[in-house]
Every structure is written in C-alpha cells, then in structure tokens.
Design a protein around this nucleic acid. Structure first.
Lengths: 331, 331
DNA sequence: ACAACGAGTGTATACGTATACATTGGAGAG
DNA sequence: CTCTCCAATGTATACGTATACACTCGTTGT
C-alpha cells in the first residue's frame, strides 16, 4: 500500500505537505502542489479513508434506512437521496432489513462509520431512535413523525390527504367505501387513515369496522383483501389504499375478477411514477417524494454544518391527482 | 467521545485487554471479559470504525453499483444484495449515478472505504474497471461480462434467452416482429438482441432494420417507440423488449392505443415480480435475479477470504415464462 | 539600514485500535 | 520441591493522516 509518506519521499517534501496538497483549502505554493500531485499520480496514491476518518472524525458517509425496496415509493426516494448525496460528495450506506435496522444504523453513528442518518421508513417508534435523537445525533426523518420529540423532519400532510380523498368520494356519491391501511405502527398509514375515516364520519358516512383493513404495505396482501371485498354482496363502491403499492394490488384483483370498469373505484397514496402509467392510471394523493428527499438531504447537510441549530420541520402539501381508476379520463 | 482507554481505566485493565474483549476469538478469562463488557455498557462505548479499519485494513463494507433504481429489476437485485450482505455483517454502500459511477466505486476500493465491489450495472466497459480487475481487486460482476477478462461473475444465458423468444414467436406464426433493445454498450441488451435476431434469421424471418430499436432501458422511451410502431400500416405482430421495464412501456402504449388484445404480442426479459401482476401478465424470459444476487455475494465473500483463488464464473439458465401478453391464459 | 511580518514548509504529535512481544503466576511433571 | 510450560494480561508500538507549532526567508515599511 502506498502512503502519503511514500509520496513525500518521491516529491522531496514532508508528509505534512502531502497532506496539505490534498485539502485544497490549505495554503501551498502552486509549484510544490504540482510537484506533489505529480508524485501522487506516479505512485497511484489514494488516501486511506479510515485514517482520515480517525483524524477528522468525519466519514463523509451518510446512512439511509429504507423499509422495502420492492415498493416503488422507497425506490424513488432512495434514488433521489443517493443522487443528491452523491452530488454533495458523500457516500451512501443503506440499511434494508425492515424494522430491525434502526439499531444498526444508530450503531453506525456511534462507530463514526456514518456522519448522520436519514430514516425514510415508517415502522414502530423505537426507543433507541428516540434516545439517539434526544442525544442530538444528526438524524433526519422523512415521512415519519415521533410524538413529543423535536428533530429535523420532512413530512407531507397525510391527514389532509386522507381527508381530501373522503371529500372527493362523497362528492361523487361513493359512500360505501373501504380502507386498506398499512401496519398500525407506521405513522403515515395511521395518519392517512385517521384523516380519511374522520372526514367520512364527519360527512355522515362512517366506514364500518368490517371495511377497515390493516394489510401491511404489501401488493399481494392488498390484492387478497380486494378479492374478498369484491366477493361480498355489499361490495364497496370505492377502496382507499394507504399507498400506491397496495392500490396496484387492488387494481390487479379488480382486473383479475374481470369486474366492470368503474364498479369499484380505487385510490392510492404517493403518486409514484408508475401510478401515471396507462396500465394503472391511478387516482392518488400526490406526495412530492423527490422534493421531500432533496429537502431531507438539505436538512442533514445543514445540521452537520451547524449541530447546535434548532430542529427544523418542513411540511409539504398533498394534492389529489384524479385519473382513470376513479372513472375519469386521464390527464 | 469514549475510547477503549476510558473503558480500560474504568474496568481496571489495560487498553489491550479491552481490545481483546471485542474480538471473541482472542483468549481472555471469562471473569475479565465480563468486567470489561460491563464497563463498556456503563460508558456506552462503541469502537471507532475508522480506527479499526486503519489497523485491520478491513472496512467491513461492500460497495454495490446500480444503474437505475426506478427499474424494478435493479431494485430487486439491490434488495436481495443488501439483505444478504447485511446477514453477513457487512455494511452496504451504493453508487447510483449511472455510468459515471464506476470510477467512484473503484476509488473507494483504493481508499479502503470498501473491501470489494459488486457491479450490477451493464453500461460501457470502462478501462478503469478493466484495469482494476487486472490488478485483482475484489470485484464481482453480476449480469455483465467483459471480453477477454477473467474475473468473478454471475450471468444468465442472455443469448439463449433471446433465441428462445425467437423460436417461440416463429412457432406461433408471429414472424413480423420488432426488437426494442437498450443501449448498445450494455452487454446484456446486446446479447439478448444478438440471440434473438440471429435465431430469427436462422429460422428464415430476419428482422428488418427499421424494426430494430435501441431505446435505452427506459419505460417512456419504449412506450413512444411502440406508439410509432402501432401507427404503421405494417405494424408488427409481436415486440420483444430487452427488459421487462421497457416491456411495461410497450404494454402501456398498447393499452393507450386501445388496440385489440393480442393484436401485438409483447415479450419482456427478467421476470421481475411485477411481470406476474394481473395488470401486466407479461410473457418474459426469467432471469433468477435473487439467486444471482445471492451467488454474487457468495463469490465476493469467498474472494475476500481467499484473494488468490482463480476467478469463478457462474451461469444460470434462462427460461421462457408464458403469460397473457402473448395471448395465452395466465398460469 | 533594520524591524516586523507573513507565506510556505518542516517537525512533532495525536487520533483510537490491534497485536507482537514481554511478563507474570500458577498448574503439572519429574 | 524445583523446573517447565502455558494461559492471562500488560507494555510498547504501528497503522496513515491532519494539524498545532516552530522555523525560514523574502517582502514591506520606516
């Protein structure tokens, strides 16, 4: 392995000068800098990330926790996050083990393996996470909130989005409706459900208990539920799914059952790219996932620059996008 | 920051003993080990990854290069890779900047920021990559081959898969067919196209030049091409797309054009989970992506354990999965 | 002419851990 | 009862880099 000392020897300078040639900020005569750079080139020198990390206490690496990469929403968010972090010159390490990953990601902060972590997943509120945030570790939450805890986070209006769906359905006289939610410990699903169910009740059309489901954020589970719903005599006039991924499952079940188009409306949440595909043409509540991801990166970068700053909360509005899955012509 | 020295002081032992308490292999009396563990717990000690990396020259981190996370094939592969690497106790850093990422990932090996890299992307054959492989860096290629170069890699039979599609189409009397490939510098797309086009010619039905397209592995581009094809007087009886993602685009265009089901068959390649969804019901060539990912991890782990071993090449068979997009009933 | 200064570079050390080597003490062999 | 030997632990050092401090020497101001 070639070290900065080797470079120093070849260039006829001290090891310190080599180190200085690395950081563009430090003052160094252009002549020596060129000489050192040439020596680096000749030897194929690459600085050792671990050694740098030890001295600077910076790994130039950010952790990202995702729940389920087969769900296109998470793919899109991760796609945007990784591109943005890459632009900022940071490495990206991911944890993809579902719920259990909180611990590993938090441990990585302690190990100084990552400088900060972005959580995009919405599972149970772990005590470790709470403790880490209270210790002011550099953590940003995307699409997730923790009660009574101050930290950087970017959210969209899940309650309002759910309510908007209720209003839309009632306005179009679809009042016998079902709700397919995700796991109950996911704040997003809970809030979307809360907003939707509350507004349905307010509007005089409460959703009966046997039309409320907690599937667990999965395409196939959702399809099964839809299948059972369609088999009922009083099958619903519309189904609201807590995310697009599950809505696709519902649409698939509908298609498989070969039922009349428009007999049962389907509405999703997220507006992932796929929702606009002709094959789905899904009415859904738009969540600006890529904007949210970019904002999350921004928050984290600023926190790293200024650890003492007060936590910031950024909220994005949600917007109902009407498409063919609720009978209307596509845009 | 709490260091191993702090732990040593509290436990009344030397720093070396603390270090030994970390690696379960080293011999240490159960009594002192317990004492040290208790002290670690009390102080909340976490070893510094950078320092460890510097001493051991191991980062316990693997790099993964992906091309496009919005393509579900890559999502699935990354999903499997990350789970498998996590199981092995390794961190996963990803590069997602498309073609340019080769350089960064290879640099990371030099920096000792990662112990090895798995390439899942299939873009141009970069000289840096070739050079790195020749220097015996721990690199595994998934779904990608480099001519005249020996290295660990796992592939599936792209040529054979393409040929199987040709045979299937001709057997069903669909001889006026089009091919929508990806970028020409992707070995997978090239091989699939080669296998397909060659066999069509052998069977007496060469694909005319104006029915061959290089879209670039993208849903929307593929849809546009399909649209133009359908507008022709001699529109094709079938379209073979070099991956499922593009096939979905073709199906979308077909659906948007509201053409007769079965007028134009669509065939994909990969068999991602979505291909089986009722909304697509896509006939495709199965590539065992998750098996391939697992095998890739295996190859890399063994290479790290035994750097001098001869490179291994693992090939998976490909298999035509017939579904509704070629007129047949779903399984 | 000399003093003061600052840009450019070298010297020395610290970051936190792992491990080769030295040391200790106690068990077992004769 | 002495000697040998090994297990358990301490001592010392190295990994590769960044940076505080010291130093040199040419420049500027008077």
């Amino acid at each position: 392995m070639v070290t900065s000392r080797d470079v120093a020897r070849l260039a006829g300078v001290s090891q310190a000068t080599v180190s200085r040639a690395l950081s563009s900020s430090s003052k160094l005569s252009p002549a020596t800098k060129a000489k050192v750079r040439a020596a680096m080139e000749e030897l194929g020198y690459v600085p050792h990330a671990g050694a740098q990390a030890m001295k600077t206490q910076r790994s130039n690496t950010i952790g990202v926790v995702v729940a389920d990469l087969t769900n296109p929403f998470y793919s899109e968010v991760l796609d945007e996050l990784s591109r943005e972090l890459d632009k900022a010159g940071l490495r990206v390490v991911i944890w993809n083990t579902g719920g259990s990953s909180h611990t590993d990601a938090l441990k990585a902060i302690g190990e100084h393996a990552v400088d900060g972590v972005i959580f995009t997943t919405a599972t149970e509120e772990s005590l470790e996470l709470r403790a880490a945030i209270e210790k002011a570790k550099p953590i940003v939450l995307i699409n997730r909130s923790i009660e009574g805890l101050d930290c950087d986070r970017v959210m969209s209006d899940n309650v309002g989005g759910g309510a908007a769906v209720a209003e839309y359905l009632v306005r179009h006289r679809r009042t016998r409706v079902a709700f397919i939610g995700g796991t109950e410990n996911a704040s997003t699903s809970r809030e979307r459900g809360r907003g939707f169910l509350a507004r349905m009740r307010e509007l005089g059309h409460p959703v009966p208990e046997h039309f409320r489901f907690r599937g667990g954020f999965d395409h196939d589970v959702s399809a099964q539920i839809m299948e059972r719903l369609l088999a009922r005599a009083d099958s619903p006039q519309a189904v609201f799914c807590a995310n697009d991924f599950m809505a696709f499952g519902a649409l698939d079940a509908l298609r498989r059952a070969a039922r009349d188009q428009g007999e049962c409306w389907v509405i999703g949440y997220d507006d992932v790219d796929m929702a606009a595909w002709s094959s789905f043409n899904l009415t859904t509540v738009r969540q600006p996932s890529r904007d949210m991801a970019r904002t999350g990166v921004q928050l984290l970068l600023e926190r790293l620059k200024n650890p003492g700053a007060p936590p910031r909360k950024v909220d994005f509005p949600s917007e109902l996008i009407v498409r063919g899955s609720t009978g209307l012509a596509p845009a």
